[in-house]
């Protein structure tokens, strides 16, 4: 909420509010994965040896590569937000596209990784897996569910970022709304659109006391000075989501790939 000449201006979006909402949503994601981390830590404690054994089946190289991919995607995501805040929309969108590309790359790697496991007959409920010890069955049960759920989140993230990118491509607009105490100062005024020679093309009725709000919609290209963080709350919040997905992977990676 800003003030222009004593008038209260409402921007429709509450930037901090949106961010609070997003963080709280991230907590639910944290606890969702948290439930599985509880299961993991319990079974890891009970079947430590089997888990060591089973983890050897996983390809550390692919895991490491995927870690690097996601970390780098987090960098491009953060850069994308930093760029839009300084008004460089094109570079910002480029970074966003890179982030999406990294996300897809991660999923392609996952696809081949899972595919190889399936070829070896290693998948939940497979006869080959059931011949293994209980700890190993549990390890792969958890491996497939946790990385599967994580992969699903990566896909959702890619989807969300694509939508945001598309929205950014279309020029943003903002509504400046005059309302609340002080709007009566506009009484008697009117709003007009003028042509090249100053002729009136359109004008509103005179603002009287029946007017509750005056709203002006502006379209603009982002320039450093003109970009307000409110306009890119969406990008920032999807960025938060993307980073959380990265954090989950930061834990999944050592817990599954590095305990050999």
């Amino acid at each position: 909420m800003n003030t222009i000449d004593g008038l209260t201006v409402h921007h429709h979006r509450d930037y901090t509010g949106a961010k609070i909402g997003m963080w709280v949503f991230l907590f639910t994601e944290l606890l969702l994965f948290g439930g599985m981390f509880i299961l993991y830590s319990v079974y890891r404690t009970v079947h430590a040896e089997d888990f060591h054994h089973a983890a050897m089946e996983l390809d550390t190289l692919v895991g490491t590569m995927n870690t690097l991919i996601l970390l780098t995607s987090s960098l491009t995501m953060a850069l994308s937000i930093a760029l839009i805040q300084t008004g460089r929309k094109k570079s910002s969108i480029l970074c966003l596209v890179l982030t999406i590309a990294f996300g897809l790359w991660f999923m392609v790697n996952k696809y081949f990784e899972w595919g190889a496991k399936f070829e070896h007959g290693l998948y939940p409920g497979s006869e080959f897996l059931l011949q293994h010890s209980q700890g190993e069955i549990l390890f792969f049960g958890l491996y497939f569910t946790m990385t599967g759920l994580h992969g699903l989140h990566v896909l959702v993230g890619v989807g969300v970022l694509s939508v945001v990118g598309f929205k950014m491509l279309n020029k943003p607009y903002e509504d400046i709304v005059f309302a609340g105490p002080g709007v009566d100062k506009l009484e008697g005024a009117e709003i007009a659109l003028l042509g090249k020679s100053g002729q009136k093309m359109w004008s509103s009725e005179v603002i009287d006391d029946s007017v509750e709000r005056v709203s002006v919609r502006l379209k603009y290209r982002p320039v450093g000075k003109r970009v307000r963080k409110e306009d890119y709350a969406l990008l920032e919040n999807s960025g938060l989501y993307w980073h959380l997905v990265d954090i989950i992977w930061i834990f999944l990676f050592p817990l599954f790939y590095l305990i050999t």
């Binding site: 299961l39 939940p124 409920g125 049960g141």
Partner: peptide
């Protein structure tokens, strides 16, 4: 899918 995390038969 029979992932086994709550199935005593699978540990």
């Amino acid at each position: 899918f029979g992932i086994g995390v709550f199935d005593p038969a699978k540990g």
